[in-house]
Design a protein around this nucleic acid. Structure first.
Length: 267
DNA sequence: ATGGTAGGACGCCTA
């Protein structure tokens, strides 16, 4: 059977609900993982997703900041809303679902951005980001004969040279500093996770999923970064059939600064 | 080297 999973940092689900509904109508993923929904449960637009054919919705949200939601056509079962760094932030949600005879554990993450100064001694937000990545070692890829894992989300780190518009110019910019990228790759490998975007689209091809709002012309300058990721356990990595990064979404009306990433599997 | 934009909630934090 085919399985399509999408991930998208939406930067306020309430402000951009119509954009999300248009995306679901046009791309019909089985499951969409949103980040930065920026609302608590009581303000989440459940009805709109239900009416769009996505009745199974699980969220971990808070007022004003952060927040993740997993929206599905298929039945999903909440596994955990894990708290990282004892901060009380809503940055993780995991669910289980059945597909192709497998029980799939799907993690939806929003990793802290880390502030502007890449020095944990003077910037608490950067310290928090590094601590968060270390704590993600506690989320390895669960795998077995009848189980598999997928991890998606805005991980706020662009690990490879071709994940940014200029490797040299971003070496001291939070999201691409060596301390972040090395910790990130070490954590991913220790967890047994496969980077599916790079499996499908190897270097040196550039991949960007985010372009700053601050650029005068994002498309002309094209100073993007790959901050959004799709990982899986090795036992389904070979079942990936396509990765699609919807660059055009950055040019939609009142866009998010991130674009959707779609992963297709044949399980 | 700097400042540029966006969202939530309405002064200022986060990204």
């Amino acid at each position: 059977m085919s399985l399509t999973i999408a991930t998208w940092n939406i930067n306020s689900v309430r402000l951009r609900i119509q954009l999300v509904l248009d995306f679901l109508r046009d791309y019909t993923p089985d499951i969409l993982c949103l980040q930065e929904i920026k609302c608590p449960e009581e303000h989440f637009p459940y009805q709109a997703f239900h009416d769009a054919g996505y009745p199974h919705v699980t969220i971990n949200g808070q007022k004003g900041y952060h927040g993740v939601a997993t929206i599905s056509k298929l039945p999903i079962e909440l596994v955990e809303r894990r708290e990282f760094c004892a901060k009380g932030d809503t940055r993780h949600l995991s669910v289980n679902f059945e597909a192709g005879g497998l029980t799939v554990l799907l993690h939806n993450f929003y990793v802290p951005a880390g502030g502007d100064e890449p020095d944990p001694e003077i910037n608490d937000k950067f310290r928090h980001k590094l601590d968060f990545v270390e704590e993600m070692r506690g989320v390895p890829a669960a795998t077995g004969e009848k189980t598999a894992s997928i991890l998606v989300g805005d991980l706020n780190i662009a690990p490879l040279e071709n994940d940014v518009w200029s490797h040299k110019q971003l070496l001291k910019v939070v999201s691409h500093t060596p301390v972040e990228t090395e910790a990130f790759e070490a954590m991913r490998k220790a967890g047994g996770w496969v980077d599916l975007m790079r499996q499908a689209i190897p270097e040196p091809e550039k991949i960007y999923t985010w372009w700053s709002y601050r650029a005068a012309d994002w498309a002309a300058s094209d100073r993007g970064r790959r901050l959004d990721h799709v990982w899986s356990s090795p036992n389904i990595a070979g079942k990936l059939t396509a990765i699609e990064v919807l660059r055009d979404a950055r040019g939609w009306d009142r866009p998010s600064d991130h674009v959707p990433v779609i992963a297709r599997f044949d399980l």
